[in-house]
């Protein structure tokens, strides 16, 4: 499923206005530990996290993740947003907690490894 379809169906807020959401999402990973995502995330995964600082963008670039969803209504730091737009990493958000969001993503066919 495309990121844009997931955004619509789960009512996700899109923070990176200039970044296309047409990438396919092939799976998902949920973690707040950066090295855990570096170690276990896969290319084209959607990353669910509550970290909002700029380093999440570098992790997404290095792992070629499909995008990042911030949970619990957390908003990206301004530098995070700038870096994400520069690198073309989609950053989205939801008021839902990680458990609930992951459950809904799973229901739509986005699964872990």
């Amino acid at each position: 499923m495309k990121l844009s379809d997931l955004a619509t169906r789960l009512d996700l807020k899109v923070y990176t206005a200039g970044t296309p959401l047409e990438r396919p999402v092939l799976g998902g990973y949920a973690s707040d530990l950066l090295s855990d995502v570096i170690g276990h995330g896969r290319k084209d995964d959607l990353w669910v996290t509550m970290q909002i600082h700029p380093n999440i963008v570098a992790v997404a670039v290095l792992k070629e993740l499909a995008g990042i969803v911030l949970v619990n209504g957390r908003e990206p730091a301004p530098e995070t947003l700038q870096q994400a737009e520069r690198e073309g990493v989609p950053v989205l958000g939801t008021r839902l907690g990680a458990f609930e969001l992951v459950g809904r993503l799973y229901g739509l066919g986005v699964k872990g490894s």
Binding site: L33, L34, S35, D36, I38, G39, Q51
Partner: peptide
Amino acid sequence: ELGFGAGMGLPNIKR
């Protein structure tokens, strides 16, 4: 708190 210190840095390099 920022998500560093997972204790996976050196193991990730090794892997």
